[in-house]
Design a protein around this nucleic acid. Sequence first.
DNA 1: GGATTGATAATTGTCAACAATCTCCCTTGA
DNA 2: TCAAGGGAGATTGTTGACAATTATCAATCC
Lengths: 254, 254
Amino acid sequence: MKSVGSVKVERRSLDSRAADVLREQILSGNLVPGQRVTETALAAQLEVSRGTLRAALRALAHEGLIQQVAYTKWMLPEFSHADAWELYTLRGTLEGMAARLAAEHRTRDCVATLEAAFERLVAAVGSRKHGRVAEADLALHKTIVAITGHQRLIDQYRLLEQQVRHYIISSNALIMDLNQIVAEHQPIVRAIVAGEPEKAERLARQHNAPEVERAAEALVRERAAAKASPGKPATKAAARRGAGSQKEPVKANA
Amino acid sequence: MKSVGSVKVERRSLDSRAADVLREQILSGNLVPGQRVTETALAAQLEVSRGTLRAALRALAHEGLIQQVAYTKWMLPEFSHADAWELYTLRGTLEGMAARLAAEHRTRDCVATLEAAFERLVAAVGSRKHGRVAEADLALHKTIVAITGHQRLIDQYRLLEQQVRHYIISSNALIMDLNQIVAEHQPIVRAIVAGEPEKAERLARQHNAPEVERAAEALVRERAAAKASPGKPATKAAARRGAGSQKEPVKANA
DNA sequence: GGATTGATAATTGTCAACAATCTCCCTTGA
DNA sequence: TCAAGGGAGATTGTTGACAATTATCAATCC
């Protein structure tokens, strides 16, 4: 018995496999933001019962990949600038925490895993293929989180990363300068390997700063425009967000 | 129409209300960690169908309040020292982020809300009732998070806070020095009101440091004991955790 | 005596039918 | 012309029955 894992038969429940398929569909951009989906149609398409499909949809709702309007409909979320700001501020904080922990509790194995991921990024940049670089980039960050061994952080980061991917896909927000990619990541890796928690955290957080600033500036512009013609928010998503969360803090149900 | 909310009829779905009841049961300690629960029994007790109850259980599973073993059983999680370490490190980071954001983007309303929450904590300490102080303490931290307006942070913090409450309940880990409570919180509030992001973040994170250290020390002791008598982890929860998450990073299924 | 196999009971997984609710559009009236 | 009301159709919410899987335990064989 050496390295099984792929030969065993599928033992997971049908609804979790249905969720996998739907997740793939959403993250690949086959379903566009704002689009409505109906349970019956999806159930027929995946050839599972409506009950099973509902369980899958609910799982995705918990992951932030789809939204439910009770008694009414399911729909793909539309991303506003506020969403982008939330995603990247949170990502900066979580990656900062991960980098700090990784630097504090690093082991020989962890360092090896990290450096291997970094090497794969360097190789990807060398290939000049944007898709491969993007994948290796995400994988490196995921590795930093993984080597902390902090299960809750890992789970949470995975959900956040999914939403970031969804946002990037649906807003074509992917901008990369291949020549800077390595230079931007190397200091973070070095700080972790060298065991410098403070520095690692600061660098990892700063890595997300450009996206945060871009979103923040867009938000300010948006609010200025809304002020010019009041009573008419710039996007539907902004209106939706503005409605619920003013008074009565922390009471939503999902 | 002034401050409705409690008079209108319940319009939420049955499964979410069932989840509320179960959440209350778990957080009040009526269901003890390690205990097994069966769908049929719970469904009969709540007088809902099994399908509805399953939806509720799944929601709680996503919140980390219950665990599912596929095709086998549902059970209440047992907390190890590793869990405590995860909970408090994550809480420190999220509260630090919240305090920073609150200090950066504070408005007149936010400051008023925050100071009101702090006054309630002071009043609770004055009453010398431990239960009231604990509630006001949690409420103050929740307020700091709420005034950021960061919806994803708010949602995530609520889930984390629930798990912390569950941990405190099930391990009797609540220790408070009434005389220090006010002194410990006042600097954080002041830093936010004064608009000092760096300081606010640092203080909010340090606020969780004692719990983090306690958990970390317990972990070290545990590992030392495990080394003394190998092949026999100190707790079942530690064994469970140790099994899955070594190789194959980030592949578990929620 | 101990391990293995096979039946049995208990529990979870899946499904299709029925009920409740919402949206949309048409009618009606001023 | 426009607003209010009502009904048809579509969609989600809920349920109980049936299928698949697992754990338990006695019987059997080495």
